[in-house]
Amino acid sequence: MSQSHTNQPAFMQHHFSDAEQQRESAKLGMWLFLLTEILLFGGLFVFYAIYRAWHPEMFHNAHKVLDVTMGATNTIVLITSSITMALSIRSIQLNKIKQTIWFLVTTLLLAGTFMVIKYFEYEHKIHLGQLPGHYYTYTGVEGTNQHVFFSAYFLMTGLHGIHVFVGMCLIGWLIFKTKAGMFSSQYYTHIEMTGLYWHLVDLIWIFLFPLFYLIG
C-alpha cells in the first residue's frame, strides 16, 4: 500500500492502480455527466417542441422580436471560445504552460463577452415587458398565449446562461491552478474535462440560436 504510494505521482489517488485508469475513469464520468446535462436540457427542448407544434403562428410572430444580430454575434463569440478552449488543451499537452494560460484567459474573456451581450438582450426585453408567464405585459405579438414563447426563451437561455457562468468559474479556477503549476503534459485531466463541458455548453447554444432567433 504505502509502497505503491511512493512510486506514484502526487495526483494519483490511492484506489486506482495507474494514471491511465484514473484518467479513463474521469473521462467516462464526465461523459456520463454531460449525458445527464443533455437530458436536463432535453426536457426543455420537448417543452419547446410541443408548444411550437400547438402554436406555430404565435411562435413565428414572437420570434421576430428577438435581435438576430445580437444572437449571431453571441454564436460567433461562443464558437471562438470553444476553439480557444481546445487550443489551451493542445498547449498543455505540449507542456506550454504560459500559452495555456493565455488561451484560458481568452476563453474566459469571450465567455464574459457572451454574458454582456446576453445582459443587453435581457435588459431590453425586461424593459418592453416581453417576460414569461404572469409578468408578460408586451402587446406587440399576435396570437394566443404569447407568454409561453418567452417562458421557453428565458428558461432555456437562462439555464444555458447559468451553465456559461459555471463554466467561467471553472475556467477561472483552471487559470489559477495552472499558474500554481498543478498541470503539466503528464496531468491535465481537469482542463480536458472543463473543455468537454465547455463544448457542450457551446453545442447547446448552437441549437438554441436557430430555434429561437431563426425559425419561420
Binding site: 445527464t36 426536457g43 426543455l44 404572469h134 409578468y135 394566443t144 409561453v148 417562458s151 428558461l155
Partner: peptide
C-alpha cells in the same frame, strides 16, 4: 433522473412565475 429534475424545476417555476406549461389557466 435529469428528466425529473427539469420537470420539478418547471413545476416550481410554474408555481412562482406562471410560465404556462402545466397550468391550464395560463394556457398550459
Amino acid at each position: 433522473t435529469p428528466i425529473l429534475g427539469i420537470t420539478l424545476l418547471l413545476l416550481i417555476i410554474e408555481r412562482t412565475v406562471g410560465i404556462g406549461i402545466f397550468d391550464p389557466a395560463m394556457g398550459g
